[in-house]
Nucleic acid binder design. Structure first.
Length: 456
RNA sequence: GUGGCCAUAGUUUAACGGUAAAACAUCGGGUUGUGGUCCCGAUGUCGAGGGUUCAACUCCCUCUGGCCACCCCA
């Protein structure tokens, strides 16, 4: 691909507004989209609809129910769950004080809201497991890049009250199915970061390793900070020195407790059994603080010369067995995952299933003169209600304009109703491909149209 | 948040230290009851601000925005 193509701006490089006029009104500056935000226009939405429909259908089939929660939540919901050491909360949250002096935040992810909703709506009285899915915008104040926005959208699924590793597996299965059915090549990365008990032990060992024999001084600055705040993330660093050090670090699997080990093994067994390819990635830790046990991430497979580090993750999730309890609910083992819609849509466009064209068998109704227009509007409703794909341009007067429109819409037939036809109680049926047209009895128009469509 | 590259009509792209061009798209006409082809015409652009210069779209700075890498993540 030529260089200039990549570097071309998609958005907002000029000012389509009438600057001078706005300036006179003192409004010159800010009628532009905020950075990192995006308009999703017309045809683009077909791809979105496809992704969301596929995901929702799958979710429903596996017994998940839809839930919608507010985009604005109390700040505290994220501070202590997603985690103060996570970048998402520490640096990227859209938070502010509202008119009542309450600290609020635009949600940077969906999971905490669903946990909150689970507890607040007394869902512990529902038959368990409680499985739910949700779709909507999330907000993170990052520096925008391709596939990275300040408002983006996630499709989120959660299973409450199921400790069995089958639940973890189920989420991966659904994610895998979703992307396969969208014909997107993915890689599934799986790891287990241990429960409250064994992870504590492991972190002690890990920290000790990094502090011994001057290992610490070889770490990059970020990692020195990580060593204090969130040692697990040391495994995630991409600096050459840190990667080298990581190879000597104790692997987490060696420290998993019996329970964690057993569950992890079972997750992997299920994956093997169902022939779902995965990549056991012992460095996968994920950036949210609440994870326990199984974690997984889905990245797009890139062919050719794309650099492997540049892979954006399409989705990720895992188990967070302590979060419900942490929020004040009854101890409830829970797991979930989220996929990023923008990135998924981008993949569908380049490698995914083609959109179905729904412009077959379009019938355009054209009219001339106001009396004919009224009759044509009635005909439009009649044909529409019988399931035909009718289109119109009743605001237009000239037949030329209407035929142009019919052509642009890719109409198969155009029905023409003018004064002449009104007088004769007929209507003209024009085949748009051949240009042949035939006058038919107005009463028979519907059967004639249906006959011509079915002949195809 | 850090570093690098970039910014010309709605879109894709030209050219030039002497104030801009093409294609496609849009609108109008050729054809006031006939589209898709064809012909003619019109609309519309140097992201913003400052500096250098007789003169800046062109050179310099700042901002804004985009892309890339890092960071992080969906």
């Amino acid at each position: 691909m030529p260089r200039s193509k990549n570097q071309k701006n998609n958005n907002q490089r000029r000012d389509p507004f009438h600057k001078e006029e706005l300036k006179q009104k003192g409004l010159s500056e800010k009628f532009v989209r905020l950075r990192g935000m995006k308009d999703i226009i017309f045809e683009e939405n077909k791809y979105w609809d496809l992704a969301i429909k596929k995901a929702s259908d799958l979710a429903e089939i596996y017994g998940f129910k839809k839930i919608q929660t507010p985009i604005l939540e109390p700040l505290e919901l994220y501070r202590k769950s997603t985690g103060e050491t996570s970048d998402i909360v520490a640096k990227e949250m859209y938070s502010f004080v509202d008119k009542n002096g309450e600290k609020v935040a635009l949600r940077p992810e969906i999971t905490p809201s669903l946990v909150r909703a689970y507890i607040e709506n007394g869902m512990l009285n529902l038959p368990h497991p409680v499985k739910m899915y949700s779709f909507g915008p999330i907000f993170r104040h990052e520096k925008p890049q391709a596939g990275r926005y300040r408002q983006s959208h996630q499709f989120d699924m959660e299973i409450f009250g199921e400790a069995s590793p089958v639940a973890d597996f189920l989420l991966m299965l659904i994610a895998y199915n979703l992307f396969s059915e969208l014909q997107i090549d993915i890689e599934l990365q799986v790891n287990n970061i241990g429960c409250k008990v064994c992870r504590g032990e492991y972190i002690k060992k890990l920290t000790a390793y990094y502090k011994e024999r001057g290992n610490r001084s070889r770490l990059c600055n970020d990692c020195k900070r990580r060593l204090e705040k969130n040692p697990l993330r040391l495994l995630d660093c991409k600096e050459a020195n840190c990667i080298a050090l990581k190879d000597g670090a104790p692997p987490i699997v060696d420290f998993l407790c019996e329970d964690c080990k057993k569950k992890f093994t079972r997750v992997l067994e299920y994956l093997d059994e169902m022939n779902i390819p995965y990549n056991l990635n012992l460095s996968l830790v994920r950036g949210l603080d609440y994870y326990t046990g199984t974690v997984f991430e889905i990245t797009a497979k890139e062919e050719g010369d794309k650099n492997p580090n540049g892979q954006l993750s399409l989705g990720g999730g895992g188990r967070y067995d302590t979060l419900v309890e942490f929020f004040g609910g009854r101890p409830t083992p829970t797991c979930g995952f989220a996929i990023g819609i923008e990135r998924t849509v981008a993949k569908i466009k380049t490698a995914g299933v083609p959109l179905e064209k729904d412009d077959k068998n379009i019938i355009f109704i054209a009219q001339l003169g106001d009396a004919a227009r009224r009759k044509a509007m009635g005909l439009f409703e009649e044909l529409r209600k019988s399931g035909l794909k009718v289109k119109q341009a009743f605001t237009r007067d000239s037949l030329k304009d209407q035929l142009e429109e019919a052509n642009a819409l890719g109409a198969k037939l155009t029905l023409i109703l003018g004064q002449k036809e009104m007088n004769d109680k007929t209507i003209m049926v024009r085949d748009m491909e051949s240009g042949n047209q035939e006058v038919v009895d107005y009463k028979k128009v519907k059967t004639e149209v249906e006959k011509r469509i079915n002949n195809n």
